[in-house]
Amino acid sequence: MTFPERFSDLPDYAFPRLRKLLSGSAPGGEVIDMTIGEPRHLMPDFVGKILARNVAGFARYPPNDGTPELLGAIGGWLSRRYGVTVDPATQVMALNGTREGLFNAVVALCPERKNGRQPVVLVPNPFYQVYAVAALAVQAEPVYVPATAATGFLPDYAALPAEVLERTAIAFVCSPSNPQGAVADGTYWKTLLELAERHDFHVFADECYSEIHRDTPPPGALEVAQEVGADPERVVIFHSLSKRSNLPGLRSGFVASGPECSARIRKLRAYAGAPLPLPLQRVAEQAWSDEDHVRASLALYRQKYRLADGIFADLPGYRGPEGGFFLWLPVADGEAAALRAYEKAGVRVLPGAYLGRSAGGENPGKGYVRVAMVADLDELQRGLCRLRDCLDVK
């Protein structure tokens, strides 16, 4: 059997590419890995206790959509965090990690034709790679839209030609963005919602880093949609406990939208989704209900922002993230910088081009490296200082 042609031009995933890049080199010191966005702050102390109380739940098939208690906890969090009112039973669905949800929502909601032609899925560039793979899976055309310093590191979808917008079925936005750490403000969301209404497409808001930010919590797409009276079916939001609660291994997230979109996603997931085991749903229920552990983790990330701002204060073009836990550092060439950082300092960082795609002959990630600020403060300081001292800047 041959690999489907529409996937033939997919590059290898970022981390195998990095291993290949570094495979012939020796580290120039203690290896400090700053590549993977895996939170290392303490997970909430209630996790083990809840698992122990509910271990018998592993002997039962779990509810595919999420227990009523979990869906209610998510609905309560949306109300407290964003002032958004949803019906948990018809507008919220639990996910086994948001990557699964992002992919399946495209399958469920992207039409086979848009205005009689191949549909378009708009993808910010650089981007979380599942966006493009999901578009290809449904035989839509992924259109990679630069999210660069010139556009505030968010995609300017309104600048696209009308011909593209008329074929657009879905537009992805990540806020705070991975990898650049940019935040979509209320004006950005309102402009995008107006564009979506005018050209009849869905806005997929990947908000997994929403609880990691500097001073002001980022607004949410569903929040702004409610403020301006937009159709809730227009917006599909995705959230996760991986970053918010330092529980990446729990594989727990959710998707929320209007009742019609939610029903279509739920119907597909009944056939193709992997439900979250019942004991893990009980943990997730408590995690969405508790803010103390979120505040403690956020305080640590704010220390990391201050640390990075001080270390890279003299780096030309440095821009500290507004949210999330990645640094997006400008360099002359991302691959060369990543190789040099490993060989000279033992620091592993990710070339920005591995997160982007060449469009119009240019990969907007080429002149950057992504640095994950997930280690403890001491290790992070050592790694950032070593990295600073060996960077070849633009």
Rank of each mutant, 00 (worst) to 15 (best):
A353R: 01
L268E: 05
R295P: 02
A287D: 02
R357H: 15
P155K: 00
G83L: 11
Y318T: 10
E141K: 15
P63G: 03
A336Q: 14
P351G: 03
V47E: 05
G352Y: 00
R244E: 07
E223N: 03
R113Y: 09
P88L: 02
A256T: 04
T98C: 08
A205L: 08
D200Q: 13
E291V: 08
L22V: 12
G320Y: 04
V120P: 00
A287N: 01
N54W: 06
R60I: 10
A52M: 09
A132W: 02
V371D: 03
P124T: 09
D65T: 13
P219V: 11
R234I: 03
A73Y: 04
G66F: 00
V107Q: 07
R113H: 07
T90Y: 04
P44C: 10
A263P: 08
Y13D: 15
S25L: 15
Q118F: 04
L384W: 03
V183D: 01
A56D: 15
L71K: 13
A284D: 07
S8N: 14
Q303D: 14
G116C: 07
A137M: 11
R60K: 15
T90R: 11
D215L: 11
H202C: 10
P44G: 10
I32S: 01
G220T: 06
R244V: 09
F58T: 08
L377P: 12
R19F: 14
D215N: 13
A147I: 01
R266S: 14
G346T: 04
Y157G: 00
E233H: 08
A287M: 06
K344D: 06
Y342A: 01
A230N: 02
P16N: 08
V183S: 01
E343Q: 15
R19Y: 12
C208Y: 05
G72N: 12
G352V: 05
G360A: 06
Y144E: 06
V55A: 11
F238R: 00
R167W: 05
W189Q: 02
Y61C: 10
S175L: 06
L136I: 09
V130S: 07
I265V: 15
P277H: 04
Q381V: 12
D33L: 04
L350H: 00
K267G: 11
V121I: 13
A313G: 09
I36N: 07
E194A: 12
G116E: 11
G346M: 07
A14D: 12
P321C: 10
Q180K: 05
A169F: 02
F58H: 10
A299G: 08
A341P: 02
A372Y: 08
G367Y: 01
A137L: 04
P27M: 10
C385I: 14
G360L: 03
M43F: 09
L95E: 00
A158W: 10
P248H: 06
P259D: 05
D389A: 14
P217T: 02
A150N: 13
G48W: 04
P111A: 13
L18M: 10
M1Q: 11
V92H: 05
L154H: 02
K190P: 08
S245L: 03
I212Q: 05
F238A: 00
L377N: 12
D45H: 11
G249S: 12
F103P: 05
